[in-house]
Amino acid sequence: MNRLSYLIGRLVKGVFVILAIGVLAFLVIRLVPGDPVAVIAGKSGAVDAEYMDNLRQKLGLDQPLVVQLGIFLKGLVQGDLGQSYRQGAPVSAIILERLPATLLLTLSASAISILLGVLAGAMAARRRGTWADSAIGTLALLFYATPLFWMGLMAILLFSLVLGWFPAFGMVSADMRYEGIRHVLDVLHHLIMPMTILGLFYMAVYARLTRASMLEVSEMDFVRTARAKGLPESYITRRHILRNALLPIITFAGIQAGHLIGGTVLIETVFGWPGIGRLAFDSLLQRDYPVLLGIFIVTSAMVVIFNILTDLLYTLVDPRIEVNK
């Protein structure tokens, strides 16, 4: 089987997973006792009876549950995630509008955490048993135990309120209308803190993983052979040990994707970053359940896509892996 059919197979499986998650979202809101329309429309009482009747009709609540599920899934396949009654717009449009900010934050945080985490882990492995190793290990343990939102608040306290180095809130300066390169720099200035805080936790994970993986690889026969050939140690570390030690890290990046995306709810809330996470928090406050369920489905789909990409990357990096497995 070649890569193309493997890719198609993975995509089909991914579509089924997303549909299953759609069914789950459908069930979650209906398994709760009480009128699902009241649940969807919120308990605030700000909704009139006409709207509720419309909603009831639109969801086909007078129909059997299976038919309702069919209607829901048909909408899902067509990219229809329902309407937000608070904002009077389709849920998919609202989420799509916020998606770029979240992608910028999560992708840059992943990049920085993998880069710095692998570097720190490699350093700890090479200087095993030295103070550098224990310092990296201790820091990693500490970051691993720290709540993201608390670290965010403390960073705001120190770097925004006391030192005044970085803006505490938002993605752009509200009072300035920058254009071109100034705008990019402005966004970067706002990005640094949330990106670093979100990245620190995963940096800790990657550092520990890289260290363990490198130590394991460094005991293998081909490394001993390389040493026996008299190759310089730095060359062996880079070309022989690190390369092979990176494989579990790719797998792990895929596993962590969902965790990272969940973390954006906290980080975006703390830093007022205008992405999906912040949207989730706002919809929570406003009891805008259609938007919340839409985010549930869209973020899950993001995880599915990310996992397909890491699987593909894996087969490219390690030719030993059979793609038809």
């Binding site: 979650v28 965790h259 995306i261 989730a280 369920l293």
Partner: peptide, 12 residues
Amino acid sequence: QTIPSLIFAIVL
């Protein structure tokens, strides 16, 4: 396992 756990928990 696919659903981001914090978001799932928030919805529930």
